[in-house]
């Protein structure tokens, strides 16, 4: 299958001077969810806004759903839909009026727009609230309405910009389910998220974005191993036993630990959380090394980004 989204060397500098995209490359094959994962300000939203024709860019090339973003934005717009961070619906109108409006603006006849609105309200479980103003919807309902509005014409590519930020777990699951359904019908989804878990749940492939460029790319599994395994941390009482403790840890885990002499702390990546913890603890006790603290820590997303960005040559 050909690629549905291709971005090559995209560069975007805002008028204030901030560089939001800096040599941004992305290739997304058709029919999958591709995640853009990154911290706030990494450039994820800018990338989505550029690819969905909302923002111009300064250099590079972008193609979405077979059309050139800069040269033929109109064709791109015919083939995409966008669901942003801030639900892109009309607050004063009812759910049904919103969907009819967007249907009409996309060229549906009044009757066709009403029929499609009815279908989507059913599908997204909003039929009961169809005549209420969107401003009275809960966060989850708004996001569902927003998603429904994006699906009026069955887009080839759907951009989802942080679709679950601020949602409770149940609403989040509903959005995830809707996204999975869509992809099974053949839509390509570009999803931005700050949540590793969300990318893990939905995305077949993930690009990690930092400082306006993609710093790592792969399947969730590939990235998780690249992002660093769990870390075992041991703090011992006597500073003069640090070398002995390091020897024990190396023997058990096969890796030389990092040593922080000031904190009397040793750190080592481990694959098997509980096994490594137990074995190291036993080893230290057998060597009569007093343990002040021991624990296994998952890397936080922040740490993962630090790890990944450090690998990038400046």
């Amino acid at each position: 299958m050909t690629s549905t989204i291709v971005a090559e060397g995209l560069r975007k500098r805002f008028r204030g001077g901030a560089v939001a995209l800096d040599d941004f490359d992305l290739t997304v094959p058709a029919g999958i969810v591709h995640g853009l994962l990154g911290p706030n300000g990494a450039g994820k939203t800018t990338a989505v806004r550029v690819l969905s024709t909302l923002l111009s860019f300064d250099a590079g090339r972008a193609e979405v759903a077979g059309a050139d973003v800069a040269g033929d934005p109109r064709t791109v717009r015919e083939r995409i839909a966008l669901t942003g961070q801030d639900a892109a619906v009309d607050d004063l109108l009812s759910g049904r009026q919103n969907l009819v409006l967007f249907g009409r603006l996309q060229g549906l006849s009044p009757a066709a727009a009403r029929a499609r609105a009815g279908e989507l309200l059913e599908r997204f479980d909003l039929a009961g609230a169809a005549s209420r103003s969107a401003k009275d919807y809960s966060g989850g309902m708004r996001r569902r309405l927003d998603l429904a509005a994006s699906l009026i014409r069955r887009p080839a590519v759907l951009f989802l910009d942080e679709p679950t930020t601020g949602l409770d777990p149940r609403s989040r699951n509903e959005v995830w389910r809707a996204v999975r359904d869509l992809v099974s019908e053949g839509t390509t989804v570009l999803l931005t998220t700050q949540y590793l878990e969300e990318a893990d749940q939905l995305a077949a492939r993930i690009s990690v974005v930092d400082a306006g460029r993609v710093v790592a790319e792969g399947t969730p599994d590939e990235l998780k191993s690249a992002l660093g395994a769990d870390r075992l941390e041991v703090v011992i009482r006597e500073a003069d036993r640090l070398d002995d403790a390091a020897a024990v840890i190396k023997e058990v885990t096969g890796t030389v630990p990092d040593i922080d002499p000031d904190q009397r702390r040793l750190r080592v990546p481990v694959a098997d959380r509980v096994g490594a913890l137990t074995a190291v603890l036993h080893g230290l006790q057998d060597g009569a090394i007093t343990v002040a603290d021991i624990g296994v820590h998952r890397p936080t997303l922040d740490e993962a980004f630090l790890t990944l960005t450090e690998k990038v040559p400046a």
């Binding site: 942003g84 639900a87 009309d90 060229g107």
Partner: peptide
């Protein structure tokens, strides 16, 4: 102030509307 303008602008409709 709302995302709704983003939706209008990402749709294949005349921008003058």
């Amino acid at each position: 102030n709302r995302g709704v303008v983003d939706r209008f602008r990402s749709m294949p409709m005349p921008r003058s509307a």
